[in-house]
């Protein structure tokens, strides 16, 4: 049950006298994880597990919400009514995904307001990919095809994550996400079968998005700071590099079918069929993560504006609910 009222985050951080008891509990907890059992909100869990998941799930939620911005940019300018309806549905889905994820994060004991405020204050991160601009309609196709494709690659193993509410949210998300990738690929296919200018537009979008998309899988395994414990706790099932490789292998034939060239002249295919890509420019990744990407400031400004401009709606809804509750109490007293 996703009940906030039942969460007992405080009880994990008791005094030292319970340290021995906690060590026994931690061993029991790891045994449950090893047995592929799911951990539920009211089960005992190590404080670090709770913290890691709160960070990961809330970042994931923020990414879905911020992810609405680059695509929302093209809703009014979609080339046909069919494309517009599909894009609108996709952006609505991203909002829904954000809300499933916030609800899952809240089961760990943080309130929605705390989570959202941390993002608005710039203390919580969201996926760096959304700090890149959507300059042409082909960017919308590329986002669906590659950004959602990479997200699916990441999210499918998360359906088996050890934390129940997160795993269940991911199952819903993955079911809906496949439409996103297909609508993106269809846009690319249409452009690539169109005029030379349209095909050039598709190639330009691929050129700009390819490397940032590869960075979505996170730092290389050798330097990733969260991977070890996350793997032990079965939050993470595959390493960053493993998922990246799977994504590249799946994507190369799709690009070939479109007749597009992946902007990596050093790319080669191994005897075992794997596509080897060139060194990724991690300084760019770090720069964008540090807030210096092309759209970081825009995205934050847009989120803060939406939050501020929605304040009166939240206030009005709360006031209305309070008035109704008072009236009901008065009627009951009569």
């Amino acid at each position: 049950m996703y009940t906030q009222a039942l969460n007992t985050a405080e009880t994990d951080d008791r005094g030292l006298e319970d340290a021995a008891k906690d060590a026994a509990k931690a061993a029991q907890f790891q045994a449950r994880i090893d047995a592929e059992e799911r951990i539920e909100p009211n089960d005992w869990m190590p404080a670090a597990y709770r913290k890691t998941l709160t960070r990961q799930i809330s970042q994931h939620a923020h990414s879905e919400i911020v992810g609405m911005l680059p695509e929302g940019n093209w809703i009014t300018r979609a080339p046909t009514l069919r494309r517009k309806a599909a894009l609108l549905a996709k952006v609505q889905d991203e909002c829904g995904h954000g809300l499933y994820l916030y609800a899952a994060a809240e089961t760990l004991g943080s309130s929605r307001e705390e989570l959202v405020d941390a993002m608005l204050a710039g203390k919580a991160k969201y996926s760096s990919i959304f700090n890149y601009p959507t300059l042409t309609w082909a960017d919308i196709g590329t986002i669906g095809w590659l950004v959602d494709g990479a997200a699916i690659m990441n999210q499918i193993p998360l359906c088996r994550c050890s934390y129940g509410p997160y795993a269940r949210a991911m199952i819903r998300v993955c079911k809906e996400e496949s439409f996103h990738q297909r609508q993106g690929y269809e846009i690319m296919l249409t452009l690539c079968r169109g005029s030379d200018e349209q095909k050039a537009m598709a190639q330009d979008a691929l050129d700009r998005w390819w490397w940032p998309v590869l960075m979505m899988f996170g730092p290389p395994d050798a330097t990733s700071q969260h991977s070890d414990t996350s793997t032990k706790w079965k939050i993470k099932r595959f390493s960053n590099d493993e998922l990246r490789q799977k994504f590249v292998d799946a994507t190369v034939p799709q690009a070939q079918y479109l007749g597009l060239t992946i902007p990596d002249p050093g790319m080669t295919q191994d005897a075992d069929g794997h596509w080897r890509y060139s060194e990724i420019d991690w300084t760019e990744f770090k720069q964008v993560l540090a807030g210096n990407g092309p759209c970081n400031r825009d995205r934050m400004a847009a989120r803060r504006k939406a939050h501020d401009e929605g304040a009166w709606v939240r206030e009005a809804a709360t006031a209305y609910a309070a008035k109704r509750a008072r009236r009901q109490t008065a009627q009951a007293a009569e």
Partner: peptide, 11 residues
């Protein structure tokens, strides 16, 4: 500036 908690509902 945390806004007041809006009640949680199970669906």
């Amino acid at each position: 500036m945390a806004t007041p908690n809006t009640p949680l509902w199970e669906v």
